[in-house]
Design a protein around this nucleic acid. Structure first.
Length: 268
DNA sequence: AGCTCATGGCGAG
DNA sequence: TCGCCCTGAGCTG
């Protein structure tokens, strides 16, 4: 259940553990032809948005996308547990990485990788991101900005938590049409993603609440979501807004649950 | 033990 | 917009 920060973090961990070294690869479940990379040298892992590419020697690339329920986890070496769901296991010495439930796990060529990346919009976690490309799409769409922020062609790597939180922090009405969003508002949203997502990578959780709004400031315990972070609106339906006290609203938008504050994020 | 839901995205209609 | 794919955690009984 990952947004881009999780994937970027995993890429760094994979490089730390395996880059430049031969690894063992297997698919106990049998749904991935792991023998094609088994025993070969893992060159590098790289993330683009929510896509993870692991390059092996001779230009073989394993493309992984976790989807909604996929998981990539480090496990202690030893016998494999629950092999029926284990799509891919990569291990070397004392480190083993297990992939379960991915939406995608396939071998691609570097050319195919480039084509997948070309379909993605700018990734706030990448230094080579071109936010202008996201803006050009956003400003041409009549769809609500709350739906557009789930579109990976506008900001690759952002998912449901970041869309809800960034809209709140910008005080933007999620139902405002993309073509009604001003350039300044887009710049603010983009800059906020660039500020928030690296913390997500280093902390392994999404924290968005500014100190002056945190319950802790009022002497109450921090209100932390199941995913681990402290957020303004995500999964807080009915609870009081940290800024104005109004109950947080919830509604489906773009196939996912949107959370927002109708007072702080009033339309115009 | 069973049911629901989850930080996604695809293809069909 | 809907159904569907993949798995497992967190509820309810």
């Amino acid at each position: 259940m990952p947004e881009g920060h999780v994937i970027h973090r995993l890429a760094a961990e994979i490089n730390q553990a395996f880059a430049g070294r031969p690894v063992a690869a297997s698919s106990p479940q049998g749904r991935f032809a792991a023998e094609l990379v088994d025993g070969s040298r893992l060159e590098a892992a790289e993330a683009f948005g929510k896509h993870l590419f692991i390059t092996f020697e001779d230009g073989r690339v394993v493309h992984i996308h976790l989807g909604l329920i996929g998981k990539l986890r480090w496990v202690p070496p030893g016998p494999v547990a629950a092999p029926a769901t284990l799509r891919l296991r990569i291990e070397r010495a004392a480190e083993a990485l297990e992939l379960r439930g991915p939406q995608t796990c396939e071998l691609v060529t570097p050319v195919e990788q480039a084509a997948i990346v070309a379909e993605l919009g700018p990734d706030p976690l990448r230094g080579d991101a071109e936010p202008e490309r996201g803006w050009e799409r956003l400003r041409r769409s009549a769809r609500p900005v709350g739906a557009l922020l789930m579109d990976q062609r506008i900001a690759a790597g952002a998912g449901n938590i970041y869309r809800c939180e960034v809209l709140f922090r910008a005080r933007l009405d999620p139902f405002l049409a993309g073509n009604q969003v001003t350039r300044d508002e887009w710049d603010e949203v983009w800059a906020d993603l660039v500020e928030l997502m690296p913390s997500g990578v280093s902390d392994g959780r999404i924290d968005t609440v500014r100190p002056e709004h945190s319950p802790e400031t009022m002497g109450r315990p921090p209100r932390v979501d199941r995913h681990g972070g402290e957020v303004y609106v995500y999964r807080r339906a009915g609870e009081p807004c940290f800024v104005c006290g109004r109950g947080i609203s919830q509604r489906e938008l773009a196939g996912r649950k949107l959370y927002w504050c109708e007072s702080c994020q009033a339309g115009r």
